[in-house]
């Protein structure tokens, strides 16, 4: 479950083929973490260090330590994300501590959205989001290869049309 490879699209109905997210997503998130930790650490080190004495500059360690922890959390969270296309529905599973698994039948899809922000584009990533008539349906797959995202979008809309059902 490393990257979203293109082979094996026709998954058997009973045995879902799980796919993970692109490692690029983890890199983007860790990069953001490092950047923000850097800013915070400088602020936490400089302010007390200048105002209260040089020893207080050690406060800068606090963001750094928590960032190391977050580094691990991000990795675990990234590994927990996976999705599978079955014959009639899409499965999305995610979360480490708070786990969530979503099943969306293709026929229920009202709208498939592919988004890609500037940072995501820089790292070659795209997000696919599915909307059904229920606003509570939270079916988002981040960190996909743009080609894979488009393939998924086309497949979902195609299957959605074939199995379309009203409200």
């Amino acid at each position: 479950m490393e990257t979203g490879s293109l082979e094996g699209t026709g998954a058997a109905a009973d045995q879902p083929v799980w796919r993970g997210l692109r490692p690029g997503l983890l890199r983007v998130r860790r990069l953001l973490l490092v950047v923000w930790t850097g800013v915070l650490a400088v602020a936490a080190g400089l302010l007390p260090g200048l105002l209260a004495g040089p020893a207080w500059a050690l406060c800068a360690l606090l963001p750094a330590v928590s960032a190391a922890w977050c580094w691990r959390l991000l990795g675990r969270n990234w590994r927990s994300w996976r999705y599978a296309e079955r014959a009639d529905d899409l499965l999305i599973s995610r979360g480490v501590l708070w786990r969530e698994e979503t099943v969306v039948p293709y026929g229920r899809m009202q709208l498939v959205e592919v988004t890609s922000g500037p940072l995501e584009r820089r790292f070659g990533l795209a997000t696919v989001q599915l909307h059904t008539a229920a606003a509570a349906t939270d079916a988002t797959i981040p960190g996909l290869d743009p080609a894979e995202a488009e393939r998924l979008r086309d497949r979902l809309t195609e299957l959605g049309q074939a199995r379309s059902a009203g409200l």
Binding site: L97, W98, R99, E100, E101, T102, V103, V104, P105, R108, T132, A133, A134, A136, T137, D138, A139, L167
Partner: peptide, 15 residues
């Protein structure tokens, strides 16, 4: 027939 999607959630304490 009216189900749009099904979700399963589990928090740490529930697990």
């Amino acid at each position: 027939a009216k189900v749009q999607s099904v979700r399963l959630t589990q928090g740490p304490w529930e697990r």
